[in-house]
Design a binder for these strands. Structure first.
Lengths: 357, 357
DNA sequence: ACCCACTCTCGAATCGATTCGACCCCGGCA
DNA sequence: TGCCGGGGTCGAATCGATTCGAGAGTGGGT
């Protein structure tokens, strides 16, 4: 039992056929007579051989049946952020036809995991990059160097890479316009991180925004409120929104009447911060989100937000990958957000004294 | 450019060294002089070689750096069920030290994905099986046949397989006792599926329960209410709980005063069904859950439930896998649920006429 | 009878790297 | 001077399967 595992050659020998024939029995890529099929199958059973070693098979055939999905740093984000979760669900759906497994990867090796699985070290047939990651460009380079089909979700990747996009800028502009039409003038923005490893902080105009989603949504908001101050959070979490909200309400920005948050989770945190400061939502301050997910414990608030088709995005990415792996060039797809008005926005309060400190 | 990709031999030739030396430069498994290191590195750069092909490397070295996580059928469950989500988060954490990627796998090939990635066809170094899957036994057999380290979360797998367990039976019994102490006698159970592919239905005593979690929790409930009828749902979803609830309240079971749901999501659905039937929770009927997750839109209810350390379970599994891959035998771990009383349970209503039809 | 077409099976090359023992060269030490 | 030890390099074997062209056998059509 502790002896070496049986190989297909062993099986072939036992069955009295050539290795090539035995291989064909398992892969079904050529006609095999019923009798040999049975002989090989039985030999395999006798030897406890359960099928070709995936490693060897993938080396020779050049296919591993694995699609890599690249996340930033902590893989947990894939599971803790509802938007990602939905996207993954769609993605799983989209690659189903291909029958490929989804390999969760980190975009850059980290100190505490020196030999982490990355795009360059993992046997993937194709990759899906998520543009919310700040290391998009590096990942892209790695993939291109290996000549692997790749699809980018939300992020610019050059002409030859299919992208699954969202009208981030337009959508965010729409919400901003809505706020303006409600009379808001003094608006602050709670943004997503500007790059990998970012710690929440006020944004300087000189700072290079390396995450496409952040940049595009910000541009949309700035289209309407060109000089709104921006606090970029460390991630799309309620807690980070809380931090951003505190920064916005407590110190730098007196008299803010509306906050544009770049995600629903951030918005939830901002609302909480507002309440901490004794501000009423939406009477004293309006808050908008982005994503259209269900946020736990936000009741009775219903965010004014932009509903994005997260699952559809994932599915489209999966389909694009499937197509490329079949040799069909895949087209880019652009999705549109739907504006949804909730009860977290209202007309701007009267300039004088509506706010109580 | 369309020519074949450079191999390590090409690099070696270009650098004027042997392939073995070039290999060592990349793997760092033997001392190399600085000058050759530089020569090889430069040759690689010149040829656009970004590192060894993972397929070939894993064939020879026997390690792929991938840990497989097995789900049932639709991969989406991994992302849509909050408990799984938390577990995955912990798991990602637990294997972080190993630096391995997580490969999402389905337990059995399905009709619409004939050549799906499964345990037998994927290059995994180790596997994590989740006992909520009905095909646990088959998966286990597949893994053992390949001689791969494996850890089972919630499920019995035999003596030689480390398991990450939960005191399902004891915990469920605790809740059942609580209900009994509140005076409940006529109790129904909304159970999880009994096997893969199960469609929601009343459970017959003869039915073989193939999913460990379901069986154990059921046993716990039956320890107290030995003849409570059981409706096994098709999955842990609010909608399925709704179906189960309707079945329980509308027809077969008059005068039910309490429902023990095997998951919080099911419980949420049951509550909804109760409301549909004009029953008040908890005045007319008590409902208990299991998991201790946050359920969207359940407010103002707070489930009486059992809080399980989902993230911890995942982390423990990850650590066990890591250990085994290092050659250290891993021990089984057993986690305990914590009883949490919410506002969905109350004293049983008076036998006569409290219920309004 | 002959030839063609078709079904099966086989051998040998190949996928791209890793590994292990052998080997060389050089400095240090008796 | 002779020997030992170790850093650094190299050859050759190996990992386990797939692939492709060639060849053997068989049946049918004319």
């Amino acid at each position: 039992m502790s002896t070496r595992r049986a190989t297909i050659s062993d099986v072939a020998r036992e069955a009295g056929v050539s290795p090539s024939t035995a291989s064909v029995v398992f892969s079904g890529k050529a006609p095999v007579s019923e009798t040999t099929r049975v002989r090989v199958t039985e030999a395999a059973a006798a030897l406890g051989y359960t099928g070709p070693d995936p490693r060897a098979a993938s080396l020779r055939s050049g296919r591993s049946g694995i699609v890599g999905v690249v996340f930033e740093e902590h893989l947990g984000t894939a599971f803790l952020d509802p938007v990602q979760t939905l996207m993954m669900d769609g993605l799983a759906d989209g690659v189903a036809e291909l029958g490929a497994g989804l390999l969760l990867l980190r975009d850059a090796p980290h100190a505490d995991a020196p030999r982490a699985a990355t795009l360059t070290t993992a046997p993937v047939d194709a990759a899906v990059l998520i543009g919310c990651s700040g290391n998009l460009r590096e990942s892209l380079a790695a993939v291109k160097a290996r000549g692997i089909p790749v699809v980018v979700i939300e992020g610019d990747a050059g002409a030859d890479v299919p992208r699954i996009g969202l009208d981030n800028r337009e959508a965010q502009r729409q919400v901003a316009s809505h706020l303006r039409s409600l009379g808001h003038e003094r608006v602050a923005i709670a943004a997503l991180p500007v790059r990998s490893g970012w710690r929440g902080a006020w944004l300087d105009d000189e700072i290079d925004i390396r995450i496409d989603v952040t940049r595009d949504r910000l541009a949309g908001a700035r289209d309407v409120f060109s000089d709104a101050p921006v606090f970029a959070a460390a991630g799309s979490f309620i807690d980070e929104g809380l931090i951003a909200g505190r920064a916005i309400f407590s110190s730098a920005m007196p008299q803010v009447t509306a906050v544009i948050a770049q995600s629903d989770l951030l918005a939830a945190g901002v609302i909480r911060a507002a309440q901490e400061s004794g501000l009423r939502v939406p009477e004293d301050v309006s808050v908008t989100g982005f994503d259209g997910i269900v946020v736990d414990g936000l009741a009775p608030f219903e965010l004014t937000t932009l509903v994005q088709p997260a699952t559809e995005k994932g599915r489209a990415a999966g389909r694009a990958v499937t197509a490329m792996l079949k040799g069909v060039p895949a087209a880019s797809v652009n999705f549109t957000c739907e504006f949804r008005e909730g009860n977290t926005t209202a007309a701007a309060p009267d300039e004088r004294g509506a706010r109580v400190d």
